[in-house]
Write a protein that binds this DNA or RNA. Structure first.
Lengths: 344, 344
DNA sequence: GCAGGGAACGTAAACGTTTTCAACGGGGCT
DNA sequence: AGCCCCGTTGAAAACGTTTACGTTCCCTGC
């Protein structure tokens, strides 16, 4: 026995009937079309308001082929600061525009990603923000080519604008920071090159080593970004005779900090540590950790703006935002965990 | 110049035409209705597959009044572990069910919350998970009464099932833990009583004090849960002569830990500290902080299950999950930050 | 033999919008 | 006066499904 009251919701036909006009006029008035006389438009709006009318977004999106009712937000994880902070700000901004954000988690699995993309286009999303999984399937690329897309955090080589943290520069700067303090045995813990930001960070590290005149063949571990991997890989690196550890990745940093603690090395005397992420958390450590701080909110603002601009462009026929990277430069925040190496 | 290719997407009418059957049969076959002969159903399914057909969820949801295409996820923030972890797991589980999750952030503002709820029902969501803002508007209550709702983290007094962390017990246990170590001057930093979980935690603290035979009038600050508030309020509390600080709230804990550090007190000798949240982060501190650990993933699993059950119930007419709290008990993880008070 | 019934399928009406197209009326122009 | 155009409106056709309601056909039971 379905509990659906037959007339629970007031529709555009009700308004039309009650006002003695046609549904077309009602629709036009409510959408601010200039093709309706101001006084009647106002009358319709007032009546709609008083009846508590709110348009069915499904019907609207189904009818008007173009619609910005929904956008997708496709990310590998959301339970990590790098993603949750961006999701929060994007949801805020998109909501201000009246578009709703469908959140999907890929867990970095190409198959899941593809399935979710299919379902998203089945929901006729207007566009999406995506942080692509490591390997993009052909079908995935084809789907992405058909709607406004903004890449986030990671690039997958598709033709779309993207917002990224300028990690190359940040990593270079971090290496130079360590080198300037006198370190020559620097180890690097980062994400795999197959992840675009992994590659970028690694490039930054290499460039930093080069600029510092150091041997580019530093101890290095590139692992999937989880806390556990960070802990284990950092422990391995710390077993060597390095004097400084640079971490490129937020989850890795949490694990690496734990490993550094567990190693028993005194920081910064016996080990300098540069981590990646939210300085407020890493300020918990003693000493507070030197941190590469990314402005996630700024990333989110740009991503949301780019997406909305793309939607506008699609609708108005104006030129779309040009594809390519939009970089937000992180700040290296020196804290107590980096200092001159003790001996040598 | 809209770039819409006229026949970009294959619909049920195309399939019907191509197979020489009716759209009704196609729909039935694709939805696994028993009212279609197995062989023709299989033929239809195969053809749909080969044509890459994927049903338009908007049309489906619009037509079939009942649909689980979308659910809402209405929370005050998402850039905090308590929410991002739950959002992640819920998205995962709901996605496995083929349901998409619309994420909205209320920022704990009742007006925003109401606006977003209106838009969500305009999207004909099947149900929602909500962490209600502090004060619920009348209209909000009315809306929530009309669809399957599962409360999360906070309760707002509506008739609905909810999943919560059993913070009362955790707080009681924490106080007893401190008391057993010999503390009698315990300060409490928590969220306002107007937040349901703030009230619950406070009750737990009071009960703990009572069970420990301590004076219930302990130094106490109840503030909105932000890191800054946590830092400032903790600093005030630490200016007193308390020997232990108990924090009820994740963001507050981050700030409180910073304040404890800044106070210069040695932990645990001069100050015992119990925080709330993710032990992995608080393990960064030296010593690692004793933490009330909440199993967010478990909370999420229960919330998702309750919501899906509610949807099934609504559809099948079976009894809905009974309203009331479903508690997940947190674990107190003692670490180095709690110990006997130095003198006395 | 036929009424009755159920299984399988088709027709068409929803669902609630937007949008195309046509119609109407009134000006300004020739 | 006739014409055309523009501003305003309405009727109806989309959009892509699901589903209520028939219709057929075959089978069973009397």
């Amino acid at each position: 026995m379905p509990a659906r009251s037959r007339r629970s919701t007031v529709g555009v036909v009700d308004l039309a009937r009650e006002l003695g006009v046609s549904t077309a006029t009602v629709s036009r008035a409510l959408n601010g079309s200039p093709a309706v006389r101001p006084e009647v438009a106002e009358r319709i709006r007032a009546h709609a308001e008083s009846r508590g009318y709110v348009a069915n977004r499904l019907a609207r999106a189904l009818s008007a082929h173009t619609s910005r009712a929904f956008v997708g937000f496709v990310i590998p994880y959301v339970d990590t600061p790098a993603y949750s902070a961006v999701a929060a700000e994007c949801a805020r901004l998109l909501s201000a525009d009246g578009t709703q954000m469908i959140l999907t988690i890929t867990e970095n699995d190409p198959e899941r990603e593809l399935r979710q993309l299919r379902e998203l286009v089945a929901s006729r999303i207007a566009g999406l923000v995506i942080s692509p999984s490591t390997y993009a399937l052909d079908e995935t690329r084809r789907l992405l080519a058909e709607l406004p897309v903004v890449e986030l955090h990671r690039a997958s080589g598709i033709e779309a604008p993207g917002v990224f943290s300028d990690d190359e520069q940040a990593m270079t700067e971090s290496v130079l920071h360590l080198a300037a303090l006198g370190h020559s045995r620097i180890a690097y813990l980062g994400t795999p090159e197959a992840l675009s930001n992994g590659a970028v960070r690694l490039r930054g590290v290499r460039r930093g080593l080069e600029l510092a005149g150091l041997d580019p063949a530093v101890p290095m571990r590139l692992v999937e970004p989880t806390r556990e991997n960070g802990r284990d890989a950092a422990a391995e690196l710390l077993a060597g005779d390095t004097t400084a550890l640079l971490v490129g990745g937020g989850s890795l940093s949490v694990g690496a900090a734990a490993a550094a603690r567990a190693s028993g090395r005194r920081i910064p005397d016996e080990l300098s540590l540069v981590v990646y992420g939210d300085p407020a958390w890493f300020a918990l450590a003693d000493p507070p950790l030197t941190t590469v701080q990314v402005e996630y909110a700024e990333l989110a603002r740009r991503a949301a703006r780019l997406l909305l601009d793309s939607l506008d462009a699609r609708h108005a026929g104006t030129p779309a935002p040009e594809p390519g990277p939009h970089l937000v430069t992180p700040r290296l925040r020196p804290a107590g965990s980096t200092g001159p190496p003790l001996h040598r």
